[in-house]
């Protein structure tokens, strides 16, 4: 019983939140990794792309709610998501045509493209701020919980409760669908295969008649979809604020690099690894240990290894250790 209570407590406060956060990071990292695999640079504008897509989705959600269109127990934002993806897709295609194309044709060094992406980051950040402001925005509607602490306690008869928020459940389901569709696309369709060929060996791909412009366009569209989905899921789960999305860049990059940048499986593994590390290290584990250790052996302190604000430090330490000891990441990089 003690064991179960401890497990339920851990699930409620560590495992479920980390799973949801990990899924959001994983989808974000997939976007970064795709840009790296196909366009061969680290896209610093990805966090702000996520913010832009989310901002559009929030505006459309507001219109839908005003018109009385909702999804019942599910958040209305899911209905607005396709519009957000389409708008972000157009934006990214426009950015590519206006900005990145020039450098790609010049065969500029990757570091130049990174600096260019800094410029794009500024512009997107400004656009989002002008478009929706800098306030904190909550846009999750519908049912709040899949099941609540009381319901769980009544059902299981345990002392500790477990609650799963709707947004957490939606995050996991959406993430699973997104990843399944992405992998199906990359492995089974002609376009997906041509993207993988392009990533593996650009010259060989060109030689076999693959249209590079088409590969790049499709990539940006997929990145737009991934960024918007990740952004909306994160915003539903927590809240939307332009600045927080910029800060997500660090854990997202950490996830992509830890997994092996350029490798989608690695991005997903990295996302969950970073999320679990962040949540476990910054959550006070006293209660779990009190349940699990024999009576009287329970710790006196909170057993919070680091305070919550140091969560950056956690993802960063993992990143540094991986970079120093296994620079290619857990899964070998550069292969989609």
């Amino acid at each position: 019983m003690e064991l179960l209570n401890g497990l339920v407590f851990l699930t409620n406060f560590v495992i479920v939140p980390a799973l949801a956060y990990g899924a959001q990071l994983a989808i974000g990292a997939l976007g970064v990794t795709l840009v790296y695999a196909i366009l061969r640079f680290s896209n610093f504008a990805h966090g702000d792309t996520m913010a832009f897509g989310t901002a559009v989705t929030i505006k459309v959600t507001a219109v839908l709610v005003a018109l009385g269109v909702t999804l019942g127990p599910l958040p209305t934002a899911l209905l607005a998501l396709p519009v957000g993806i389409a708008a972000t897709g157009l934006l990214l295609l426009g950015t590519d045509w206006l900005v990145y194309k020039f450098y790609r044709e010049q065969k500029a060094k990757p570091v130049i493209l990174v600096i260019v992406s800094l410029g794009v980051m500024f512009v997107l950040n400004g656009l989002t701020r002008v478009f929706i402001g800098v306030r904190d925005i909550q846009f999750a509607d519908g049912a709040r919980f899949l099941f609540t602490v009381q319901q769980f306690k009544a059902w299981s008869g345990l002392d500790e409760g477990l609650a799963v928020r709707t947004t957490q459940a939606i995050t996991l389901v959406t993430a699973a669908i997104t990843v399944a569709v992405l992998f199906w696309f990359l492995n089974k369709t002609r376009t997906g295969k041509s993207m993988r060929a392009f990533s593996d060996n650009e010259d060989l791909a060109l030689l076999s008649g693959i249209d590079p412009d088409r590969v790049v366009r499709v990539t940006w569209l997929i990145v737009a979809a991934l960024a918007t989905i990740a952004g909306v899921l994160y915003g539903l789960d927590k809240s939307f604020k332009a600045f927080t999305y910029f800060q997500l860049l660090l854990p997202i990059f950490a996830a992509a690099i830890v997994g092996g940048i350029g490798n989608p499986v690695g991005a997903i593994a990295g996302g969950f690894l970073i999320a679990f590390a962040e949540v476990t290290v910054t959550y006070p584990l006293k209660k779990v240990l009190t349940y699990w250790l024999p009576d009287g052996m329970g710790p006196d302190g909170l057993v919070q290894l680091l305070s919550g604000d140091y969560k950056f430090a956690v993802s960063f330490m993992i990143l540094l250790i991986v970079l120093l000891f296994k620079p290619t990441g857990l899964f070998k990089g550069q292969s989609i």
Binding site: S42, V111, S307, Y310, F312, L319, L320
Partner: peptide
């Protein structure tokens, strides 16, 4: 170069976190 960029970006955030905490 781009790994160095991300590493330094992270270190800056950690320094700010230390100052805040």
């Amino acid at each position: 170069s781009d790994y160095l960029a991300i590493a330094t970006l992270g270190i800056a955030e950690i320094i700010i976190a230390v100052l805040k905490n």
